[in-house]
Design a protein around this nucleic acid. Structure first.
Length: 597
RNA sequence: CCCCUCGUAGUUUAAUGGAUAGAACAUCGGCCUUCUAAGCCGAAUACGAAGGUUCGAUUCCUUCCGAGGGGACCA
């Protein structure tokens, strides 16, 4: 839609635009505020500084050209003179009903009824694929997200990563990319050793083997905290833990390694269950242990060209590239996380023929990944621009970051059950749902609340959450959108599905109808922007606005009590199309719809 | 000391250099005999400070103030 309007503008100002050194992409088409039509452009204001005329004057001249290009007005701008027919055709093609010039120099575009009808028909035809584009067709992208550690609890941080990552995946799919979902999880290292040590210090409860994995992992995490605290206090214990660490690396066939393996198995089962609950199934799982050997090799291979020796370690000296210096191999010859991340990156490209690899992590790793990417490009120029780090902010509790070492972290499973409790309280007791229905409502509403909260903030910003008023179930929230969807579903059930054919008799005259239909027409542009900017919060804002417009429509334009049969059917089509778009948009956020609530 | 984020109503936040800075929660006031009131309609309240660039700055640049993060063998 935007692209078509851009073309029309170009018909008129093309030459002048080029002379001014501006590019086609500089022609901005934006969604206009409600009372200023549907789309608007500021080209006149952009030209003002260059041609030294007032923006209003320029805008008026452009408008004359748009309205009837043969106008006999003195043209001090030397605008292009496309034939009247070409402009008329362009306008007709993009179904712009009228244009308007408004201070300080905006040119506004109003959709015609044709846009509304075409949009409804497009939505009906494309269904779940409405909003998809072909931008990434034939291209492959891998998104790495989640990244928990075994032998430790999954925390809110991982929850944020998982939810954000899933949304990135969905956005790229909507852009037409083939997406590979990857997880990189820590299953080696001191923290794993600490946890294993802690576990072996205390008799486990008699019925331990009968516990489910959630409960087992809670116990394991307690033992991890204990081991972690003991590590700093006692040299003898430190020695024991380091020994366990060695046994794990060497896969020594002893009690330590066997215990480690057992906990690792529970952890992975637990992880998969938690991720499944969040709607995530990975295509490729990379345990840290898998890249360990490769990490050493890759550093040694490039030892003198990219890396250098310093204080006994092998480092990448980032200072000369304006970055920090990072250790890749310790003086004992062990690979650090940087070496492992590097090996992982190379492995990803060699396993899949990727056009792009995205890694999402928390913001603290921003500088670190700059270095990793730099080194990667030094290894092979073809990696340039293909490895992308997307940082996201913390989920803070009362403005403070929590420490996993001290056992302060909020567990992912706890936060989910907290959300479910809230959702349960909200269920209308007058409505008699079956037990299964009730359970479905609780789960989906809770997930919608959680996911929307996480995704509605800009990625790189921290989310400060107050446990008291944390998950919102009304207002700017996921459940609000679900609720709107449920209302639509309920109407359709009552009135019955309808097909108006080509909709040729229908007309949307009330402002609530027009605004709703306009918003539907803009959905594709929104998805495109959200995908290109990797910004799901754009989708959140759009969906909330759309749901609000629907609720307003619902309040002011009755379907059952429409004036006549055509209006009734037109409105029902509008409602059904809205339902489809809400569903598609929620899908981009990884939120499932439901039929009643 | 160096580098990176971020400062918007009481709170949580939005706005590719543009129109009256948009919402939500909380507060106050209306609307359920009428398609699900988790809703609708309305009121009130905000760009950390000072300069600069621009027709136009919350947005870009500089300085200051404030918060957080990163900077050698932990991830």
């Amino acid at each position: 839609m935007k692209e078509q309007i851009r073309k029309i503008i170009l018909e008129v100002v093309g030459n002048l635009w080029k002379e001014s050194g501006l590019k086609k992409a500089d022609i901005e088409i934006n969604e206009a505020p409600e009372k200023f039509g549907d789309y608007s452009t500021n080209v006149a204001m952009k030209l003002a500084g260059i041609v030294k005329k007032s923006p209003m004057e320029i805008a008026k001249m452009i408008k004359i050209r748009l309205d009837k290009s043969s106008a006999r007005q003195e043209d001090i701008l030397r605008l292009d003179k496309p034939s009247a027919r070409r402009v008329k055709d362009s306008l007709a093609q993009s179904q712009i009903e009228k244009t308007e010039v408004v201070k300080p120099g905006f040119i506004n575009f109003y959709f015609s009824q044709e846009v509304y009808k075409k949009t409804l028909l497009d939505i009906k035809k494309a269904g779940d694929k409405y909003g998809f584009s072909k931008l990434g067709q034939g291209k492959k992208v891998m998104v790495e997200f989640g990244q928990p550690n075994t032998h430790k609890a999954i925390t809110v941080g991982h929850l944020k990563s998982a939810v954000s990552g899933l949304s990135v995946v969905k956005l790229f799919e909507a852009l037409g990319y083939e997406v590979i979902k990857a997880n990189y999880f820590g299953d080696v290292g001191m923290q794993v050793a600490k946890s294993t040590w802690g576990f072996m210090q205390k008799e486990k409860p008699a019925d331990f083997e009968e516990w489910d994995n959630d409960r087992k992992m809670k116990f394991v995490n307690e033992r991890y905290v204990m081991g972690s605290l003991a590590f700093g206090d006692d040299e003898r214990i430190e020695k024991e833990i380091r020994q366990i660490n060695k046994d794990i690396y060497n896969k020594t066939d002893n009690k330590n390694y066997q215990q480690y393996q057992k906990i690792r198995d529970w952890s992975i089962e637990h992880q998969n269950a938690v991720f499944e609950k969040l709607g995530i199934s990975y295509d490729r799982q990379y345990p840290e242990s898998e890249v360990y050997q490769e990490a050493i090799k890759i550093v040694k291979r490039h030892q003198d060209k990219i890396f250098e020796k310093s204080r006994g370690a092998i480092i990448y000296n980032g200072e000369k590239d304006g970055l920090n210096t990072w250790v890749f191999l310790t003086k004992e010859g062990n690979p650090t996380y940087s070496a492992k991340d590097l090996a992982l990156a190379v492995k990803k490209f060699s396993e899949y023929d990727l056009d792009l690899a995205i890694v999402t992590t928390s913001v603290e790793q921003t500088d670190y990944f700059k270095a990793i990417i730099k080194v990667l490009e030094k290894i092979d120029k073809s990696f340039k621009g293909k490895y992308k780090h997307v940082p996201f902010g913390w989920l803070l509790m009362n403005n403070k970051k929590t420490s996993s070492r001290m056992g302060e972290t909020i567990k992912c499973v706890d936060i989910i059950s907290e959300a479910m409790q809230l959702a349960e309280q909200k269920i209308d007791i007058d409505k008699e749902y079956s037990l299964e229905q009730k359970q479905e409502i609780i789960e989906k509403v809770a997930m919608a609340g959680l996911k929307f909260l996480i995704l509605s903030h800009e990625f790189h910003k921290d989310i400060n959450y107050d446990p008291e008023e944390f998950i919102k179930l009304n207002g700017f929230s996921g459940p609000f959108i679900l609720y709107s969807y449920v209302r639509i579903n309920s109407i359709v059930k009552k009135v019955g599905e309808v097909d108006l054919g080509n909709l040729k008799d229908s007309s949307f005259e009330k402002s609530e109808e027009k605004q709703l239909a306009s918003a539907l027409a803009m959905y594709q542009d929104v998805v495109l922007r959200a995908g290109q900017e990797i910004a799901p919060h754009i989708v959140c804002n759009y969906l909330y606005d759309l749901a609000q417009k629907f609720n307003s429509f619902y309040e002011h334009c009755s379907i059952q009590k429409a004036d006549n049969e055509v209006q009734k059917k037109s409105r029902l089509m509008l409602a059904m199309a809205t339902g489809q778009v809400l569903k598609n948009g929620l899908e981009l956020l990884g939120i499932e719809t439901l039929e009643v609530m």
